[in-house]
Amino acid sequence: MSKRAYNFNAGPAAIPLAVLERAQQEFVDFQGSGMSIMEMSHRGAIYEGVHNETEQLLKKLLNVPAGYKVLFLQGGASTQFAMIPMNLLREGQVASYVMTGSWADKAIKEAKLIGETHIAASSEADKFMRIPALDEIEIPAHAAYLHVTSNETIEGTQFASYPDTGNVPLIGDMSSDILCRPVDVSKFGMIYAGAQKNLGPSGVTVVIAREELIAESPKTIPTMLRYDTHFKNNSLYNTPPSFSIYMVNQTLKWLEEQGGLAAVERNNREKANLIYNTIDNSGGFYIGCAQESSRSIMNLTFRLQSEELEKKFIKESEAVGFVGLKGHRSVGGLRASAYNAVPQETCQALATFMADFQQKNG
């Protein structure tokens, strides 16, 4: 390998090089077993040790309080969009959502198939280029839960803080920003995240939930879609995505080595500022999409003066090793996804390229 790509893919996304190298070393013979971890039984002691250690590592990094359980599920966040109302929305209640963009919209559409929904706040009038203020959020008294999408990858917006929901469980889809900063887990009834952005490879979805929320599910739900199935079986009811969970294990250890989430957040903000400062100091050559107070430190979205210039930017950036800078097909533009594993040098290289591109085309 002569050179690593400047990887700004939105997901599946960059994985720390150190994690990839460790996995490479252990790939054929894990812990002297004569097998890859992908080959061994999920009922065996070696795999179960990795499985349980991964839960403990995640709880330690996020400072998860007592009374919460970590589940390792499959089907991505998209399956959680349906599982949440199927398990938690009971007769006489309403599922309440903050409408912040593309992924919140997908979650709401799934909930509507299950029962009554309610929009607690929305930034649609601002084309989802901001996160609603906390005082805009109105939660019905009979709400089963309030759901927020903590970071919208397509629009490039992120909650700076979370609402206090009292006795109504707060549920957070943190697929694209989990572990990018410290979070007060005690404010949430449930947090869930697809792994393929900040946790490791695709294939496993992490759920962190208060035990009382998932201990008993309605008996009418198919077995694999019941939280209590996985809670009572330590996520080992069926064969888990063992290699993906192993990679999450290695990624969590790498995050510990970086100094924990406070250090990770500092690094992420420094990386994001390299690019946002380039946008803001470009005299309008680059145009940031999200309102400044709602800007994501994970997905940085921006535009140029014309689509033709954006196409040229993509073509020239790809020629020198940049990957994933094209905006989502639904909105166009440009997007740099600077997840935890994206090195600061990669963000610096992008800032330099952007300055050079402006000089040549401004």
Rank of each mutant, 00 (worst) to 15 (best):
G115E: 08
V206K: 10
E91T: 12
F128S: 02
K109L: 13
Y68C: 13
Q196G: 01
E138N: 10
L304E: 01
G194L: 06
I208C: 02
R43T: 04
L325V: 09
G34P: 00
A18S: 13
M190T: 03
P240W: 09
D164H: 07
I191V: 12
Y97L: 11
A341F: 03
E310T: 12
P140Q: 06
V70P: 02
A111Y: 14
R335L: 07
P16I: 04
D105E: 14
E257S: 08
L71I: 13
A121M: 00
V148I: 15
E216H: 15
T205H: 13
F353M: 03
M224I: 11
A111V: 01
I137M: 11
N87F: 15
K112T: 11
G194Y: 14
A104D: 05
Q305I: 01
L300I: 15
F8E: 11
T346M: 02
H118F: 15
L309I: 13
D126P: 00
S41Q: 04
E256R: 00
N151A: 11
G172F: 11
S293Y: 09
E124V: 07
S33N: 01
Y162S: 02
A95W: 04
K253R: 15
L113C: 14
P343I: 12
E21S: 07
V98I: 14
K253F: 07
E155V: 09
L58P: 03
A143G: 07
L146R: 04
A144C: 05
Y47I: 01
V206L: 11
T346V: 07
G67D: 03
S244M: 05
A160I: 13
G101D: 03
I46N: 11
G101V: 13
S186L: 05
I314P: 00
